[in-house]
Amino acid sequence: MFDQKSSPVLNVFCTAGYPGADSTPEVIQALQESGVDMVEIGMPYSDPLADGPVIQQVNAIALDNGMSISKLFHDLQDIRKEVHIPLMLMGYLNPVLQYGFEKFCSDAAAIGIDGLIIPDLPDYEFEKNYKQVLLKYGLDFIFLITPETSEARVRRLDSLSSGFIYAVATSSITGNENVWEDVIVYLQRIASFHLNNPVLLGFGIKDHKGFHIASKYAAGAIVGSAYIKALSGDSDIKSLTGKFVRHILGEVEAGNL
């Protein structure tokens, strides 16, 4: 997915249908223009089990805005005319199943989506019922690992994943605080496994320090809740996004945000 890139990868998460009902393409474009390497588009769900208050709240707002998988695919039908960086869809399994898993993959591939992250789809289910469908439509599938995941299981999830491995920084929901000394030990341990896929660090990455550690000990970082928070201001998406990304990349001090 980003084989050619040697510098650290910054993957930013946004929630479809937030801040405005129709703002998803604008957010994605703003992220690309700001120098983000990859965008993870969150599909809102009524019961986001693994998410903290920030993302829970924007899920509710996005649903109130009328966001749905159908609307998202409609909104993104021309996204590849403007956007060339990898685009991932992230969400919970239930809405995807209601849409129809194969139809979902087919429609996602048709608009140029690169891969899926569905944290509550377990590996044995994936292998048994879904892997072939993803292969058929050429979509990557990313598994999560945590500091608690055993070496054998990390290797198994690596063998099932394509694109990258999503390393959850601390076993927690999204938007929590990390103890960085522990995160570094964890990333060093994962690095020693020499996995097939690059490892991106996510959960609780909110500033340049987190991005720097993720870049030093892994292939890069995924930033979610912090960006969602930054978007809640009332100025325009483009300038808020630009400022936020420069802050993460270490190009401005937090105080200038």
Binding site: S46, D47, S68, L93, N94, V96, L97, Q98, D120
Partner: peptide, 21 residues
């Protein structure tokens, strides 16, 4: 309800066509 996933298991779930509970 229709077939869906709620709280970690597949079962019957009261949900919208979009899979929102």
């Amino acid at each position: 309800g229709t077939d869906g996933i709620l709280h970690g298991s597949r079962s019957l779930v009261m949900q919208t066509e979009d899979g929102q509970v």
